[in-house]
Design a protein around this nucleic acid. Structure first.
Length: 257
DNA sequence: ATGGTGGATGGTCCA
């Protein structure tokens, strides 16, 4: 079972990239962030023709998450149970067989100390509380998405320049570590120890060409799943296409009976 | 130097 995550920065613009990538990689699950589509506009037919089922939770212009799957989910959760109508669309979870797949688009935070920054920290805390309420670390849970946090020095191109900056501040790393300590394992780092492996590059200042990236898109699994994770990789090819997303797909494979 | 580019939108907001 291959599970993948990709922030597409508008599914409208990136649909052909996504369909091409699905046909090439054939994952069981693709978690998408920043669809930027209301639910009535979701391109269900294009995915059906490629052999995939869709669950989606979107809004106009911003945010929006979706899980594309080969199997039909037996349970679906859109947003946190205590979400207000006004909350942005950043959380979706499906159950397929014995496995729960959680897809998150963690808020960016904009600037350290800003109102959006505090919203980000509070959102991560709500996510941790959701996990405590609805799951056990002994269960088969995979959480993936755009976490908007780079965790370690080896996940950023210049740790000293990034110190204290948005996506790499101590408060963000501490919040995300607390989520990790609930019971997750970073499946990518099971298989790759080196620095210089990134999932996102700023559109500006030719960051991709200059290899100035961050690893902020993650696939974490609880131990029962992490123990059967046979490989994990970042597919940098879609970032080289015309009109790419600023993120590229990350994938992990699990050998589950 | 608060840049630089890209998406949604229709003057800015967000990343």
């Amino acid at each position: 079972m291959i599970v993948a995550t990709w922030n597409v920065n508008s599914l409208n613009v990136r649909l052909s990239h996504v369909i091409d990538w699905l046909q090439r990689c054939q994952p069981e699950i693709l978690c998408i962030q920043e669809t930027k589509l209301t639910d009535d506009k979701f391109p269900v037919d294009a995915f059906a023709q490629a052999g995939y089922h869709c669950e989606y939770f979107g809004e106009k212009a911003y945010n929006g998450v979706s899980i594309i799957s080969k199997g039909i989910p037996t349970a679906i959760q859109k947003g946190f149970p205590d979400d207000a109508q006004s909350d942005s669309k950043r959380f979706i979870e499906i159950t397929v067989g014995p496995i729960s797949i959680i897809n998150v688009y963690i808020p960016n935070g904009q600037e350290v100390g800003s109102e959006k920054f505090h919203y980000k920290l509070a959102w991560i805390e709500r996510l941790k509380n959701y996990l405590k309420m609805h799951h056990q670390p002994e269960d088969m849970v995979v959480i993936c998405g755009d976490f908007n946090v780079a965790v370690e020095d080896r996940d950023v191109y210049d740790p000293s320049a990034m110190a204290g900056q948005i996506l790499f501040s101590e408060a963000e790393k501490s919040a995300i570590q607390s989520l990790y300590d609930w019971g997750f394992i970073d499946t990518f780092r099971l298989h790759h120890k080196e620095s210089g492996l990134y999932s996102w590059w700023d559109y500006r200042a030719m960051a991709f060409r200059r290899k100035l990236g961050l690893r902020i898109d993650h696939i974490w699994a609880t131990r029962p799943l992490a123990s059967v994770c046979t490989r994990s990789w970042i597919d940098v090819e879609p970032r080289k296409l015309e009109k790419p997303s600023d993120h590229t797909p990350v994938a992990s494979e699990f050998k589950t009976g």
